[in-house]
């Protein structure tokens, strides 16, 4: 993609003025912040993952997805880069090369991909009817009943996660990982992928604790890990966090700005339409001009002795 952080700062520079003027965006940030205690998440340690695909199998079973043609034990799927789709909400991809500097004996890095459950999800902001919502603990969940199928969420998602059942005639759905939300909702139980992981490369827990855990791992093994928790600030922060030991772009982690895009659009929207003030103002002005012109017209008409 050729994106880098510098470019993004400059990209957002013109917005900064707009945003600074917009008190509402701060309010929205507060919402995210105030629920910090309740946020759950998962920490994925890519240096530990062994590519067994148990998480895929667990996800498949929990969500009652169709069984794939190739069994989960078949490692030939690693030959191609896969993306989450309608029949697999999470996929593990293989990237050749050892996962970190101190793991020379490993020849490949495995990285799991699924919905990141952003703290400030663009898809939720984008959804026209609120079919995508963010549950209290951070899971981004989907209600197919009110979805109209506009696929704007797919445009909005910076991670390109939601997929669509294009082959359905009447009831296509947006499919994505929903964090096994029936269980993650208050119970503290692992999502199926984290529960299935044999070596706890995926750890489920409170986001704040996971961040501490990630920091302590980096501190303990500074050679192994890149000093960056992927997802801590990316795109406003995500519930899923990644630890890694190689360049991000080598292992399919997108370089993303720390700025959350919905803050831009919502700021624009809510500034322009705040209390409908600007539309009313425009309406009034135009009405005034119209009335003025009408009066002029009538005077002219009256002088001509005509009338309309």
């Amino acid at each position: 993609m050729g994106l880098n952080r510098r470019r993004f700062f400059s990209l957002f520079l013109p917005t900064a003025a707009t945003l600074a003027a917009c008190s509402r965006s701060e309010a929205s940030q507060e919402i995210v912040g105030s629920k910090e205690e309740e946020q759950v998440g998962c920490l994925v340690d890519t240096t530990l993952c062994i590519g067994c695909r148990q998480c895929e199998e667990g996800c498949n079973r929990r969500n009652e997805l169709p069984r794939p043609d190739k069994p989960f034990r078949d490692h030939s799927v690693f030959r191609t880069d896969r993306r989450p789709g309608i029949n697999n909400f999470t996929v593990v991809n293989e990237f050749l090369g050892s996962p970190s500097r101190d793991q020379r004996n490993k020849s490949a890095t495995y990285v799991k991909t699924q919905c990141m459950h952003c703290l400030d999800p663009a898809c939720v902001s984008a959804c026209i009817v609120g079919a995508l919502t963010r549950a209290r603990d951070g899971a981004v969940v989907y209600n197919p009943d009110i979805c109209i199928g506009c696929r704007y969420c797919m445009i909005a998602c910076p991670f390109q996660i939601p997929s669509y059942e294009y082959a359905e005639t009447l009831t296509p759905r947006v499919r994505k990982c929903e964090f096994c939300a029936d269980q993650a909702e208050g119970t503290g139980a692992d999502p199926a992928c984290a529960a299935a992981c044999p070596i706890e490369a995926i750890v489920f827990g409170k986001r704040s604790e996971l961040l501490q855990l990630a920091r302590s791992r980096i501190e303990r093994r500074p050679v192994r890990y890149v000093d960056h928790v992927y997802g801590e600030n990316e795109i406003g922060g995500t519930s899923w966090l990644y630890l890694y030991g190689r360049e991000m772009d080598e292992i399919g982690l997108l370089s993303l700005p720390i700025f959350s895009p919905p803050r831009t659009t919502e700021a624009i929207q809510h500034t322009i339409f705040k209390y409908g003030a600007i539309p009313f103002l425009v309406y009034g002005t135009l009405g005034g001009i119209m009335w003025h012109n009408h009066r002029k017209h009538q005077v002219a008409d009256d002088r001509d002795g005509g009338g309309s």
Binding site: M1, L3, F8, L11, F12, A126, I155, P261, P262, T265
Partner: peptide, 12 residues
């Protein structure tokens, strides 16, 4: 404003 939500996916 529709596409403003996808800054990372848009050509500059």
């Amino acid at each position: 404003a529709l596409m403003v939500i996808a800054p990372t996916k848009m050509c500059s």
